[in-house]
Write a protein that binds this DNA or RNA. Structure first.
Lengths: 249, 249
DNA sequence: GAGTGGTCTAGACCACTAG
DNA sequence: TAGTGGTCTAGACCACTCT
């Protein structure tokens, strides 16, 4: 009755539901559980995994939220259609993390990196005091050697001391923030707009001025509603599209 | 100990956690619970509501997912910053539903409504058989008498018989689909792009050809992965912006 | 140490689907 | 009717925060 009991480790500090979700994701990504595969009934699977049904349901619901499983009352739990696109509209991950997860081959160039007192518009969005400094970062991302994304980030240095020495060619920004602040990023907001390219970004993306691109305005928060980073992003949506998977509640 | 026990009705078919979530949303939107207000401890509040702690936690987590509450281990549960923007990148709601929720005054004009065999590109996305018909709908939305959104929808009529007689000036599309299919919409995908306006949409939005607008490509599914509607949307992001609130897991 | 949320259990009953 | 997920309970113990 405990056929799968080896897949979870009850002394691992990682929560059981999270271990189970990882295990299921693995089964699905390796096609051991294919599209439309029906999972064992919750009660059975819980027994096989040697956990309670509640814990199993918590694992399942996280995969439902990601669009990987679906449940139909009275029928069962099934593997959903494979997802193709970028989960960027869905979950707070950085571009680098997103591209790594998709196995996209990309390169990051850091164009500027300096600690400055930012311009008024940034100061206002960030609620900064007059002389508070931020790390300003201007980067460009290339996919297949073609420039696709321009990013400008402003990070509160007083919350992440030492972050100004990071090699951002190698380390995703979110990882650096979590490391140097000693806190977890908890959430963020992203606002989507369409804009015509201005000269500076047009040059960087090697496209004509006025070309429509996706423009994102992002604010990232640590726990307790502390904003730690804001950024502006210009993105060629013909090369890198953003898809949201949305539940209806 | 059951000070709040009148706020939930145990004989109402609506789940308790959902009633509790509604009640909390109400408390917050009426400012009875203001920003940064700390809620009673889960154990206390559960007793006051006369429900189990698990049920209360389920209500709380739905509000956390919406960005309305935050929880910090060891400290408590708090009301988050008030949200300003549209939850459109977040939850599968239609534009009409979104605008109604925000109290935006808008008007819908139906430009075309006919049952057709669609063009090949739509047929392919929808996996239609050769002569399968869809309801084609072309609409425009005005906010403050200004055209802001152009929508083209294709709805599988065989799943929603009778929907072709709906007055779409009055009824949100999603409501009509759920009514005439007799099923619930379960989820959808939206892909975001930036595009320059082409002549037809430019005319409808009264803006110059080539103006950058947000373009959305949407697929909506009933239970069991049945696609029921696909649509294309052009949207003036200077007038109606889309914001996602994103959790980091 | 007292108070908070985070996880987990073992059971119960209900609602929906299908043969 | 049997099998499935949906909801709910009452308890337990742990991890974290603050004083």
């Amino acid at each position: 009755m405990k056929e799968y009991s080896n897949v979870i480790n009850k002394s691992d500090p990682k929560p059981l539901y999270s271990q189970i979700a990882d295990w299921m994701s693995e089964k699905i990504s390796t096609k051991e559980w294919e599209k439309n595969h029906q999972l064992p009934a919750e009660e059975d699977l819980a027994k096989q995994l040697d956990v309670s049904r509640g814990t199993l349901r918590k694992a399942i619901s996280s995969l439902i939220k990601e669009g990987i499983l679906i449940q139909i009352q009275g029928k069962g739990t099934f593997v959903a259609e494979p997802k193709v696109s970028h989960p960027f509209g869905q979950e707070l991950i950085s571009f680098a993390e997103s591209m790594e997860r998709e196995g996209i081959n990309f390169e990051t160039k850091v164009l500027e990196k300096q600690v400055i007192v930012p311009k008024a518009s940034v100061k206002k969005k960030f609620s900064l005091t007059d002389n508070q400094k931020v790390l300003y970062l201007k980067r460009i991302r290339l996919i297949d050697n073609e420039p696709v994304i321009v990013l400008e980030n402003y990070i509160k240095v007083d919350l992440c001391q030492g972050i100004e020495y990071v090699k951002f060619e190698q380390m995703p920004l979110f990882e650096a923030i979590e490391k140097f602040s000693g806190q977890k990023i908890s959430f963020g907001t992203r606002q989507f707009e369409a804009r015509g390219l201005e000269e500076e970004q047009a040059m960087l993306l090697s496209m004509p001025i006025g070309t429509p691109v996706l423009y994102l305005d992002q604010i990232t928060y640590l726990d307790e509603l502390i904003p730690v980073e804001i950024s502006q992003v210009w993105l060629r949506s013909d090369k890198y599209s953003i898809t949201s998977y949305l539940q209806r509640d």
